[in-house]
């Protein structure tokens, strides 16, 4: 499951965290390569926050080994901490301070020089689009603005490695899009980001995704591989005239690269999802094969990528089959 990379900024080896008798994270091993957006996805209570807190040194693992930026988190020196940014899940700044004062406070925590700080804070306020609210008390700004303020605070010292714990939770879709835009921009600047999310559709924006369930790591994949693994390959969605569906099915049966096909749930007659190993190579052959039959009126054929919500449900259901006792405890936000 763990991909060995030479430029990993985070390495976890069989890490377990227990609180009393409760095991919050069980035997997790993963690596986060430098310069990537690494997503941690899973239902509430699956251990995402605990994992991120272990990575930042807030929690100490009960078992296993961890290295972040080459150091053990529980023994982080100040110099290592200065390279890490952290955006907690909840708003932990001061409601009685203004947006600017909160930013200034966090900048001081990271020892930012006063002369450099002013320019940096202005730049960040522009980055998170909070310039107009700089003198507003943090307690008086909207929830979305609070999250943006926290993002700015976590970036105030220009960290190499940013941990963002559910940055888009409770945020409207437009703002969520902006957050991911910011993250992509940061990635482009060379930052490494570890982002947890309950919104599985957001894994699309990640370079790699770790799927967690009940404290266990189910898989670490790229979004495409995740989809492929869930579906067992790729999908070509074919639309023919409703009267031609039977003929099309007959022809598809004869194609050796077609693993299976079926009409999607709720789709009209004439629509078929064809499961293949590689949609890129299979699509021309499907179009060519069906096109040779003049009785089939083929209207549309293209690679279909089902939303990650569906992928996630498939993965969770599959995991529940191997561990049925834990299904009831899960809350899946799709």
């Amino acid at each position: 499951m763990t991909q060995r990379t030479t430029n990993a900024v985070i390495q976890m080896q069989h890490v377990t965290k227990r609180f009393g008798t409760k095991e919050a994270v069980s035997d997790v091993s993963l690596e986060v390569p430098q310069g990537q957006i690494f997503g941690l996805v899973g239902p509430s209570g699956c251990g995402k926050t605990t994992t991120i807190r272990m990575m930042t040194g807030v929690y100490t693992p009960t078992e296993g080994q961890m290295r972040v930026l080459g150091a053990t988190p529980e023994n982080f020196e100040k110099r290592v901490r200065e390279r890490i940014g952290y955006m907690p899940q909840l708003f932990v700044l001061y409601p009685t301070l203004t947006v600017w004062e909160n930013l200034n406070f966090v900048a001081s925590l990271y020892g930012l020089n006063w002369f450099r700080r002013r320019k940096r804070l202005k730049m960040l306020l522009d980055f998170v689009e909070l310039r107009s609210a700089r003198d507003t008390l943090a307690g008086n700004v909207s929830g979305g603005m609070k999250r943006r303020l926290e993002l700015a605070c976590s970036l105030v010292h220009n960290p190499e490695l940013l941990f963002a714990d559910e940055p888009t939770a409770g945020v409207d879709p437009v703002l969520r899009g902006k957050f991911w835009e910011h993250f992509r921009q940061l990635k482009a600047e060379g930052h490494t980001l570890v982002v947890t999310t309950q919104y599985v559709s957001e894994v699309e924006y990640c370079d790699q995704v770790a799927v967690m369930r009940n404290g266990r790591l189910l898989m670490v994949q790229t979004p495409d591989d995740l989809r492929r693994q869930a579906l067992g390959g790729e999908i070509i969605r074919l639309t023919v005239d409703a009267e031609d569906e039977l003929n099309a099915r007959r022809l598809l049966h004869k194609m050796p690269f077609v693993e299976q096909f079926s009409r999607p749930h709720g789709a009209p007659t004439g629509t078929l999802d064809i499961y293949v190993k590689d949609a890129g190579t299979a699509l021309p052959e499907v179009i060519g094969g069906l096109g040779q039959d003049p009785t089939i009126d083929m209207r549309h054929a293209e690679e279909y990528k089902p939303p990650f919500d569906d992928i996630f449900i498939i993965l969770m259901e599959r995991a529940a089959e191997t561990d049925p006792q834990s299904v009831e405890a899960e809350v899946i936000n799709v």
């Binding site: 930042t56 807030v58 932990v92 001061y94 966090v106 990271y110």
Partner: peptide, 13 residues
């Protein structure tokens, strides 16, 4: 209660 301690645990302070 505010949760700022979480920030302090990560920050170099």
């Amino acid at each position: 209660l505010l949760g700022s301690t979480e920030l302090f645990r990560v920050a170099p302070v």
